[in-house]
Nucleic acid binder design. Sequence first.
DNA 1: GCGCATCTTATTGTATACAATTTGATGACG
DNA 2: CGTCATCAAATTGTATACAATAAGATGCGC
Lengths: 226, 226
Amino acid sequence: MSRASDRAYGAIREMIMSGELAPGDALGEEALAERCGVSRTPVRDALRRLEAEMLITRSDTQRSFVADWSLDDIADLFQLRAMLEGYAARRAAERMSEPVLQALRNCNARLRKSVMCAPPDVDSFLERNREFHALILEAAGSRKLVALLASVIEQPVIWRTAHHYGQDELRRSFGEHEELLSAFARGDGPWAEAVMGSHIRRAFHAYADAHRGLTAIDSPGRRRTA
Amino acid sequence: MSRASDRAYGAIREMIMSGELAPGDALGEEALAERCGVSRTPVRDALRRLEAEMLITRSDTQRSFVADWSLDDIADLFQLRAMLEGYAARRAAERMSEPVLQALRNCNARLRKSVMCAPPDVDSFLERNREFHALILEAAGSRKLVALLASVIEQPVIWRTAHHYGQDELRRSFGEHEELLSAFARGDGPWAEAVMGSHIRRAFHAYADAHRGLTAIDSPGRRRTA
DNA sequence: GCGCATCTTATTGTATACAATTTGATGACG
DNA sequence: CGTCATCAAATTGTATACAATAAGATGCGC
């Protein structure tokens, strides 16, 4: 991460992920360059990458904005994610090896610790959860799927609001992961696919519920994109 | 398309699509800049875009190469495409409007003309086919899906080899499109999804058969990527 | 002849200057 | 007072020069 382009990429990405830059905000190259302490060249590079990830959008005249997603868009996002991660789970189950299975078990055991204590350690949960899903994706062994899913799940709006999960939901996630492990242990692709699909759909509804409840106090006017 | 960056993008893309640049070929920025008649800056821009589309890959040291896909990769690609386009068809069926339906019918009527004559006009078929699928994708009304599918179907290896289709296969494609139209007319999402899935899978096997038959005379040694 | 360190060359990364375009403002005119 | 043309400021696009890094060649020691 020593190249300026990578620093810019990481910095801008973090600004978006953390909410420092809100959806709809304009992103001037000059301003970003200054904030990142580099010239415009690596910033432009970073913007192209972020555009590919759909974290930013570009107007018809090539001006950059932080991507803005409606609730409908998010629902769509989760649906795609359910489909793709379900497929990933199926492939992973069909290709599962003992070492990977062990890694998954270890990961979920650590996740268990994060949610079984009081209060639950949400940050730790998120990290383990991410790791768990990443391991499955890797085990699926599809280059293209990795790329597609990355662009679906790397959405700030999702990761930011995961903090609103209740303890019961966190524990349910743990339980669903355990069921996935069973499916993997038996190499049952369709079972893994079904469990994963359900897992993601439940996550969406948890998100939607939390969002609806918060929207009144949490969305003080959106900026228009066009 | 007047910006140099767009020209470079289009030119390089065309070189890849046409096979002028073969999978595994190294892409030096300087050389490309000269061939496109622009400086390295817009070339770098174009390379980032092509990288996002997975038409090129980058080594660990950031050197660019034309992407190389194995038959397994291609099978994976088609599977993802079947899933995503099936989903697109379902959504499209659920959202179908009379004007869009008419446009689809017109499109397939023109496609019919391309395949019913002797000899069939394959170029025209490909263009209509592309248009047909694009219309459905648009009707699905999912921004994210558009982006995902674009990166799946815009693979040169697929479009190049579509020329090997036999007339019977072309006509079968037309027939499957007609069946899709029926599903759309009735707003039957699951039907549309099933037909589309089948349509894509058949296309894959047609491709795989043709490829196997040609591989001996058509693949004079691959260049290694790493 | 083989392996390895070093040096040369080629390639990518970054900054900067300047050109082209867009935006938004200002003021003239109806 | 509203509309439109024109102009100024801001923003993005491109070229070029130079720095950093990686690839390949060369020759030395073994």
